[in-house]
Simulated assay, not measured.
Amino acid sequence: MHHNLVSVRAAAAAIVLVTALGGRTAFAQAELTGSWGATNNEDLSGDSLPVDYTGLALTDEARVRALSYNESQLAMIERQCQGWPAFYFAQGPFGLKIWSDIDQTKGEVVSYTVGAWEDRAPLVIWMDNRPHPSELAEHTRRGFTTGHWEGNTLVAYTTHMKAGFVRKTGPPNSDRATMTARFHRHRAILPVLAVVEDPIYLAEPFILTKSFQLTTQELATNGPPCVSAYQGRVPGESVPHYIPEQNTGRR
């Protein structure tokens, strides 16, 4: 009888412990859905200065490509709507609209979505433990992202991004680049830390930080559509570029 009583008490204690831990885990998962306005406190002025690669540990190949880049490429009709990589959400001046998709049967979050903008695709963060696709799978602007919780921080890992640029002035990223983003809510403030790694063009990780503030102003889930128009260059023209040692950064 005494042995059975001890077993019952041990089982009850285990249930209480599991329940407490489960409740603690659920409590730790911060609410991220809603409209978040950009505070724009970060200094991103260098993003528009030619031949200014401060803070970027570029490989030699990346620097050569960056110095050959001419921003007039963006006037070409076929390039006006090419968009930016997934990590642009932590670089641009816009806010974030975040919502979740929930499995109605299990009551669990299947994914979070960070809404799109005119030149940025939506970022879907899968939370259902699905694996990343094969390296040979299609690469897109938004890439493929999975997420998990570390305490009250949502950690999102992105692969399968198309080759593009880490800044508007030409430093490139390859299609082997990855991003690890951390969303850590502190009351009405949502700081985001994004770490971009690229074995081809970055000798060291590229680190981005940006803060957002919860707002009652409802943000759109998608920005205005990108519409190509004539901007001085006709289809079929050669791609504007600089030859070696010609790009001095002068306008």
Rank of each mutant, 00 (worst) to 15 (best):
I207P: 07
Q246Y: 09
N247L: 08
S72M: 11
E78C: 13
M127S: 03
R187N: 14
V110T: 09
A177C: 11
T180M: 13
L190A: 03
T19Y: 09
G232T: 06
R176N: 15
P244Q: 15
A10F: 00
P122D: 03
P199S: 12
Y242M: 12
S7H: 05
T216Y: 03
L208Y: 02
S211Q: 14
Q217Y: 06
R233P: 00
G249E: 10
R167D: 04
P85H: 05
G107Q: 04
R167K: 04
F87M: 08
V192A: 04
G249H: 08
A14C: 09
R9D: 07
G170R: 01
A177N: 08
L21D: 01
L21Y: 02
N70P: 05
R142E: 14
D52I: 00
V155C: 06
R142H: 12
V239Y: 13
F165M: 14
I125C: 01
P225K: 07
E197V: 13
A177K: 09
Y69T: 00
G164T: 06
S228T: 13
A57D: 13
P50F: 04
E108S: 15
A26R: 13
L190W: 07
Q29F: 07
R176E: 14
V8W: 04
V234R: 11
T180K: 15
G143E: 03
V239T: 14
H3C: 05
I125R: 00
H160E: 02
K106C: 05
S211N: 11
W149D: 09
G164Y: 00
Y69C: 03
N152I: 03
K162F: 01
V64T: 15
L32M: 06
L5C: 02
T221I: 02
T248Q: 15
E31C: 02
I125D: 01
L136S: 15
Y157C: 07
G223A: 04
L96Q: 08
A12M: 05
I243S: 15
